[in-house]
Structures are given as C-alpha cells and as structure tokens.
Design a protein around this nucleic acid. Structure first.
Length: 437
RNA sequence: GUGGGUGUAGCUCAGCAGGCUAGAGCAUCAGGUUGUGGCCCUGAGGGUCGUGGGUUCAAGUCCCAUCACCCACCCCA
C-alpha cells in the first residue's frame, strides 16, 4: 500500500465542524467592513518578489528569511504573499484607483504565507483580514482603522483586549531619534543582549521591542521617541489619541511599540488579547511612503491586518460561544421491499421537488435499512423525515415525522409541500432556520 | 534558524523495571423490531505501536537518525 501524503508542514485542513466558525468570522468581517465603508478587494496570492522586497523592506525578517520564493517556468521570481498591504498598493496603482474619489477604502480576506517554524497561532499558511485606506492624512482615519479593528474583535465576543498605540514618526524625525537611541545604546553596548547588539546597526528602533530583562532596564533610561517627534508628527499623534478618547476604546500609549515592517510612519498600533503578550491579534499603522516606494505618487495609506487563526484561538481560550446556525434539513427515508424500484424512483422525484422549492433535503445513498436511515436523519440534524413506504406509495401519501417531537402523521403527496411551506412561514422571519418547533 | 517536550486504532488515552495473538472508552458499521432515530444491549471492522536504522534470544517499551506536532526563543498576524 502506498503511503498517504500529508499536508505540508505549517498547513492544515479546515473541515466541516470547524469551517462554520470561519464562515461566521468572515461574515462578521464583511459586515463590519461594510459598516465602516470598506469594499472588498482580491489580489493575487503570489506577486513578483520585488514587490515585497521593496514594499516590506529588504532588512526585515519577513523578507530575509520568511518568504516562499520560487522561479516560475518563465524564470520570473515569484513570492507567495507574506502580507496583504503590498499587493493592495500594487493593485491600487496598477488599476489607477488614485483617479477614483479618495479616500479609497478596501478590505481583504485570505491566506498569507510565511516560512516560519509553526506553533500555535503561527502557521506557514495563515489567514488575514485586513483593510487599507488611501489618500487621507486625517488623524481621524487612523482612529477609524483602530476602531474598526477593535469593533470587529468585540463583535465576535472578545473581551479584555489591549490596544497599544504609538508613533514612529516620519523618516526625518525618526532618523534623528534613531541616531539618538543608537548613541545612547552604544554607551551600554556590553549590557545589551546579542540580538540587540546586531540591531544597533541594522535597525536600532527594534531594541525597543526587546523582551530581554537587561535590555528593558537599559531602555528605562534611554531617550523616548516622543521627545524627538517633529511638530507635524507630534500633533498627528495627539489628534489620533484625541479622537480615540471619543471612541471610548481603552488604549495605552506604548512608546516602545515599533513594528516589524519598514513601511510604517507615524501611527502604529497593535491589539493583544489579555494575558498574551506574544501573539498579537492585529497590527497596523500608517504608511506615508509606501505608495511612492511602489512607484506611485506620494499618496498616504493607513491599514491593519488581523490574524484570523489567532482570533479563533483567542475566542476559544476565552470560551466564547459563536452563534452558529445549525444545519437543518428534511430527510427522505424509504421503507419496505422495492423490487420494481418504483419506491426509490419516487423518493428521488420527491427529493428533487423539495430541493427545487429550496428545502435542504437529503435521502439515503447507501441502501440502508429504515432504522439506519432514521439514525442518519437524526445525526445530520434533520428536523423532518418523510417516510415513503410501499403502502404509502400505493395510497399516494407519505409519513411526515417531526424529529424533535417524535410525532408523525400521514399526509397526501399533494398536500405535503403546502404543509411544509406553512411550517416555514410560521417560523420567525420566514427563514428556514433552526428554532423550536 | 536555536533550545526543549511529545508521537500507541478516526478521537481521548492505558500498556507495569523489554517477554506470549497490543487494550479501553467514544466514534463507525451491523444486529436486537423482515417499516422508524436520539437511551440500552450484542457483535464486527479498524493499529507494520510516526518512519528508518541499531542493541538484544526477545522492543510499543532501550539507543541513534528522521519526520510531524506542541512549548520557549527569534519574529510576526
């Protein structure tokens, strides 16, 4: 026997039973996006490698060691998207969306790929919900994006969220601060962890993020970025915070928050589940130069990405019960000897009829006994079973069994659909949904 | 990429310090009612003990490697 091929490392299947949660989360995502005025955009899952190198930044870990890059048959270097923003920016420019009324506000939902070492909440193929808004410098936009993110998480039922906000300044003032921080840290070089000594030259701001106790202690005495922000950046931050106050979203100004992607300017933020400093649920910020870096005009953008696996994990660890709709259907069972096949043919005809009337309906496909058919009907959550037996066939009737009540009665074929219709109409909003009855 | 832990039926696990045909519960299928589910009873199928080497008279049980998963680090969603 040949061996069974397994899914590649860091990937997994979403099976019936779990996928319903994803559908629900996606439904809320689309809902909130609409409420905030964002429209869906779908961009390719792979792009030219150069897009990410330029967009995300060559020095970032994502680009340096986490990309799924390969040559296609035309010798092009292709990369499976590790995040969503770069592709959206590309699409914005390529489709001349800058000629549309601004701001252009889009959301995306889909898989991303990073060659990481998998662990809980970190997959090689993972899924993000993200939004991007182009063409506005308004601090209220920054707040809107933060609010969107918070709102989405809250609507799902997540509590105890930490919202961290900071500004990393513009290229000008960040450069000043970066130098100041570097100069300061140089004095204590020996006390820094190995990693941070590397960061000193590559990207001093990252030291702020270090979780090493020793580095954190040094940081207490180090200059903070806020003192170095230029007038524009300082005011921008103040206004963002001011608007945030209005939203009543609890937030913390985290002067040490810097993000891993190079394109961020000014506002950056992160949302974490309580009691978990490691796996942030969402991260985002403003990017004033990314569009230019990608070859377009100087148009600012602001966005966020949420990790859906992590959102699902947080929901689980907080014990949130999602209001999933139960699957419900009508099951057609046949009973009795059927040497001529008439019974079976009639069942198939009835099945078709029900489905054409939009009733979710199923029948046995395994030639099972009536008992087994009943069992199956119960398992799949059928609310009604139509039992079609040889006797009923002769009389032109069926037995209609209410599975929840365990009651059944005989009804003529002609009146059956009428009767079912009446049941549906009795139900709330006329929807074919699980409820009492 | 670094360090650590784990790996026995579809699922959750048991298997004592290596020793006979590897077990349980749940799930699946069938039967108990030749036309009726959710409870109960009976039975059946299903495992080359992650994979490959090695030690031993003998390995699920010890050793090595490898793969996968989990945890921590790095980083990020």
């Amino acid at each position: 026997m040949v061996s069974v091929i397994k899914a590649p490392r860091g990937t997994r299947d979403l099976l019936p039973g779990e996928i319903e949660k994803w559908h629900y989360v996606e439904k809320v995502a689309r809902n909130v996006s609409e409420i905030y005025g964002y429209q869906e955009i779908r961009t390719p899952i792979f792009e030219h490698t150069e897009l990410f190198q330029r967009g995300i930044g060559d020095t970032t870990d994502v680009v340096q060691k986490e990309m799924y890059t390969f040559e296609d048959r035309g010798d092009r270097s292709i990369t499976l998207r590790p995040e969503g923003t770069a592709g959206v920016v590309r699409a914005y420019l390529e489709n001349h969306l800058n000629n549309k009324p601004q701001p252009v506000k889009v959301y995306y939902l889909g898989p991303m790929f990073r060659y990481d070492r998998p662990q809980a909440g970190r997959m090689r193929q993972f899924h993000q919900l993200g939004i991007e808004a182009f063409g506005s410098h308004d601090p209220a936009l920054d707040t809107e994006v933060i609010s969107y993110t918070y709102d989405f998480l809250q609507r799902l039922g997540l509590l105890d969220l930490r919202v961290l906000v900071n500004s990393v300044g513009c290229p000008e003032c960040r450069a000043l601060y970066s130098k100041a921080l570097k100069d300061f840290m140089k004095m204590f070089q020996d006390a820094l962890c190995e990693n941070c000594r590397d960061r000193l030259d590559r990207n001093p701001l990252r030291i702020l993020d270090c979780k090493e106790q020793s580095c954190q202690e040094l940081l207490d005495g180090a200059p903070g970025i806020h003192a170095y922000l230029c007038k524009g950046c300082r005011e921008h931050l103040q206004q963002v915070l001011g608007y945030l106050e209005l939203t009543a979203i609890p937030f913390e100004v985290a002067e040490h928050l810097v993000r891993g992607l190079d394109y961020y300017t000014q506002t950056v933020f992160e949302i974490l589940p309580a009691g978990n400093d490691q796996d942030s649920l969402a991260g985002g910020g403003r990017y004033s130069n990314l569009v230019e870096i990608c070859g377009g005009p100087a148009i600012p953008g602001m966005g966020v990405a949420l990790g859906l696996e992590r959102v699902l994990l947080a929901l689980e660890s907080q014990g949130v019960e999602l209001p999933l709709e139960k699957r419900e259907s009508i099951y057609i069972a046949t009973a009795g000897e059927d040497p001529s096949g008439n019974l079976h043919r009639e069942a198939v005809r009835l099945l078709l009829e029900l489905r054409r009337c939009d009733y979710p309906a199923e029948k046995d496909l395994l030639g099972r006994s009536l008992k087994s058919q009943m069992k199956q009907a119960g398992r799949i959550g059928a609310s009604y079973v139509i039992i079609l037996g040889t006797d009923e066939l002769e009389r032109g009737t069926v037995l209609l069994r209410n599975m929840k009540k365990g009651e059944q009665f005989e009804i003529s074929r002609e009146r059956l659909l009428e009767y079912l219709k009446a049941i549906v109409q009795t139900r709330e909003a006329g929807m074919w949904k699980a409820s009492e009855n």
